[in-house]
Amino acid sequence: MKIIKSKGPEIFDIELEKDLLAKNRALAKENRKKLDRSKIIAIDIMGSIGSGKTSLIKALLKKLNMGEAIGVIAGDLTTTIDAERIEEEGARVIQVNTGKECHLDANLIHQAINGMRLDGVKILLIENVGNLICPGEFPLGAHKRVVVTSVTEGPYMIVKHPYIFKEADVIVLNKIDLAKAMKVNPYQLEKDARKINPHAPFIKVNALSGKGIPQVIHALGFIS
């Protein structure tokens, strides 16, 4: 007699080597290819909330004075305030709302550059969501990464967020006119930056007055 026994559940292991950030990196590479094909130089502008990312972009647009040859992707959680501020400078703007996410990712940029008119665009400025931590884990495919910090954030921003500053191609210290009032020593911040990233130009800027903006443009390899 053959007895058919019901087998208990079989327990098994599946071994994997699934890199969870690889998908973003692959998409970032695709973005870079598309930008290169279209001969567009893209700059990822990161920085904490209120550091002056939008003011820096406005100042760059004013000085470069290239009208619609500059495209801007403005990342924000839910509002279009930044996109409206940037549009005043004559650039071609697309707003990306991340909803509850604290950073742009390569997929959002992929959608943005596919949904945007890119004919005639030479430079694409990407304003990341205000945050010094999360964007560091999500490259977008930009050619250069700028990190903006400001004296009003206190003296420890660079020491506290070394990773993002190490990855930066250009470091901008904004609101330099307020250093004295804030009792922040910009040279100490510069020293902190040099310690972990000696290669990135460290530029002291007042985005509202335009001080330091030509140096930022030069550091990005553009001609104003």
């Binding site: 098994f12 994997l16 699934k18 884990e137």
Partner: peptide, 12 residues
């Protein structure tokens, strides 16, 4: 700097 899924234990 890793962020990896390495193993799943399951029943079938």
């Amino acid at each position: 700097r890793e962020c990896m899924l390495r193993k799943i234990q399951a029943e079938r």
